Simulated scan of single mutants.
Amino acid sequence: MATIFDMETVALDDQDSALLIIDQTQLPGRREILRLKDQKSIWDAIYLLKVRGAPAIGVAAAFGIYLAAKEIDEDTFDDFYKRFEEARDYLDSARPTAVNLSWALRRMDSVVRENREKTVPEIKSLLLREANEIKAEDIRVCCSIGENGLKLLKPGMGLLTHCNAGQLATSKYGTATAPMYLGQERGYGFHVFCDETRPLLQGARLTAFELQEAGIDTTLICDNMAPSVMKQGWVDAVFVGCDRVAANGDAANKIGTSYVALAAKHFHIPFYVCAPTSTIDMACKTGADIHIELRPAEEVTEMWYEKRMAPEGVKVYNPSFDVTDAEFITAIITEYGVAYPPYDVSLKEIFEQKAKAER
């Protein structure tokens, strides 16, 4: 039987002008590939978390804006770019916290602006090439994060992760799970605890599912069990992904992450954030500057229940993310190395290494 690793999280069928994604809202019960052919469907898929995880959202956005450009039939650059901008801004509005969405769209926009002297068909071809490179780059980045993270670990360790920063959140390997997958391939024998991650249960539905499919020794726990598991001495390190890292090292990730970081600090357990440089926003000074997306109340009151489990009319506060302060983060693992405090210095050094590598 095919596993989830035989399916691509995000793919392009250029011949059919369709974006292909695994519908993550149906997992683990159903493995369904959606074929999205219009911008509203792609926007909905991003907003409704059918495709989710910062890197996967970036790849989906790149393919999505290419498909939008492909449908623009204007001949002059100015007319083409006007409609391109409209499509770009529309897609960018789907998920404001995940920086990879705007990052990928900016990359695609640069391709258009830097080639204004070329014909529209030539620009469309360049957009396709850039979108494919964004996906290929995502795979390379995740591999590098995995290698850098694995250097911090020893065989037999107990690990804990929150939400899903796995293969389903990227093109391959994941970010926070990349060291786990590489360790599994090399016989490290990790045991991984997955927080269920309320209210949308990405840890239960997605992370536990894909780790188990990979043959990793996996235990699912409720979010509020993390400190208890840590106290038992079963957790040697915490690995999480992120949707945006500020220049000072503050990191926004799925709601509940800061709670895990606080517990890890109390029990002297290293807390690692796995962040592609595309997710690090050096223009964002601190976590206070990160816009936190608020989600519908129904996700808390009734989404997972046969009957509503909260009184009608009760107020609901449902932020999708929280910000973990830099002081609770042991290190930030990137594709160009591991950054340690003070992050305002080490993150700049990471980008200096990136600049040298790209020359």
Rank of each mutant, 00 (worst) to 15 (best):
M157S: 11
E130H: 02
E130T: 03
S144L: 12
R116F: 14
I145W: 09
R106C: 01
L128C: 06
R113Y: 07
L153G: 03
G156D: 05
K118G: 08
L152S: 06
V111L: 00
C143L: 12
C143N: 11
G146Y: 05
K154W: 09
M157Q: 14
K151D: 01
A131S: 10
R116G: 10
P121F: 04
K118I: 02
R113H: 12
M157G: 11
L126A: 07
P155E: 12
L127C: 04
V112Q: 07
N148D: 09
L152N: 06
K135Q: 10
R107P: 08
L128W: 02
L105C: 08
I134N: 01
E137S: 13
V141P: 05
N132K: 14
L153Y: 14
C142W: 03
L152F: 06
L105K: 09
E122V: 14
G156V: 02
I134W: 04
K135C: 01
R140M: 05
E137V: 01
V112T: 05
E117C: 12
L128I: 02
G156M: 07
L128P: 00
N115P: 14
E117K: 13
I139E: 07
V120A: 03
L152T: 08
M108W: 03
E130N: 09
E122S: 13
E133K: 13
S110F: 07
E114Q: 12
K118T: 09
L126T: 11
G149S: 06
M108G: 10
M157D: 11
V141K: 02
L127M: 13
V120G: 09
G158R: 14
D109N: 15
E130L: 04
L126R: 10
I134D: 02
R106Q: 07
V141Q: 12
P121H: 14
D138T: 02
I134V: 09
D138Q: 01
I134R: 05
P155L: 02
E117L: 10
K124H: 03
S144Y: 08
E122P: 11
N132A: 10
V120R: 10
L127G: 05
T119C: 04
K135I: 00
E133V: 01
R140W: 06
R129I: 03
E137F: 02
G156K: 10
K124S: 04
V120I: 15
N132F: 08
G146V: 01
L105F: 07
E130V: 03
P155G: 05
K118D: 15
R116Y: 13
I134G: 07
K135S: 00
K118V: 06
S110W: 09
L152R: 06
L105N: 09
S110N: 14
C142D: 04
A131T: 08
R107G: 12
R113M: 04
R116L: 13
P121Y: 12
E147I: 11
T119M: 08
L105H: 11
E137D: 06
D138H: 14
E133Y: 09
L128R: 02
I134L: 11
D109K: 10
N148W: 03
E122A: 15
L150V: 00
R106K: 15
G146A: 04
L126N: 06
P155W: 15
K118Q: 14
C143A: 13
P121K: 11
E130K: 13
S125E: 15
A131W: 08
K118R: 15
A136W: 02
